[in-house]
Write a protein that binds this DNA or RNA. Structure first.
Length: 135
DNA sequence: GCCAACGTTGGC
DNA sequence: GCCAACGTTGGC
């Protein structure tokens, strides 16, 4: 089981939109590093849904329901996407500010590389953020 | 609205 | 193959 963090601008696609939709293709990722992470995703992996630009917080958890397949929004055939479904809404959003201020998360890939839209988390980081959402 | 970080493109 | 120019992302 692997853990991830995936970013979306909530005015384009929010966690609530995903809840309404049920299952969604996580498309439009056009960055090789992020693509590599999506290729490594396995069915059942868990990922935080992070709202970028507006909100700046992890707001929910989703589960990978379909592994890498051609991105339906891509006409070149070069890019892949995964399918995700909502798993659990966080009791309290965990803000970027809170994550940055927590020494337990100092090594987080997303904090070190803010532009990366799909980033891996260690199990410890995942558990820690989940605990923060319940505190 | 600005800026830093980073990826991509194109000239050489 | 290098590097300057430019575009995009995302935080502030």
């Amino acid at each position: 089981m692997n853990y991830w963090l995936m970013k979306s601008e909530p005015d384009v696609f929010s966690y609530d939109d995903l809840v309404k939709k049920g299952v969604a293709e996580w498309d439009g990722v056009r960055n090789h590093a992020a693509q590599g992470h999506m290729r490594a995703m396995r069915k059942g992996d868990l990922a935080f849904f992070y709202h970028s630009n507006i909100g700046l917080a992890a707001v929910g958890i989703m589960t990978i329901v379909e592994e890498a397949a051609p991105d339906s929004t891509d006409e070149t055939g070069k890019w892949i996407a995964v399918h995700v479904a909502p798993h659990e809404k966080l009791a309290k959003p965990v803000t970027l500010k809170a994550m940055k201020g927590d020494s337990a998360l100092a090594g987080m890939v997303m904090l070190r590389q803010s532009r990366l839209s799909v980033a891996p988390l260690t199990q410890e980081e995942f558990d820690h953020i989940l605990a923060m959402s319940k505190a």
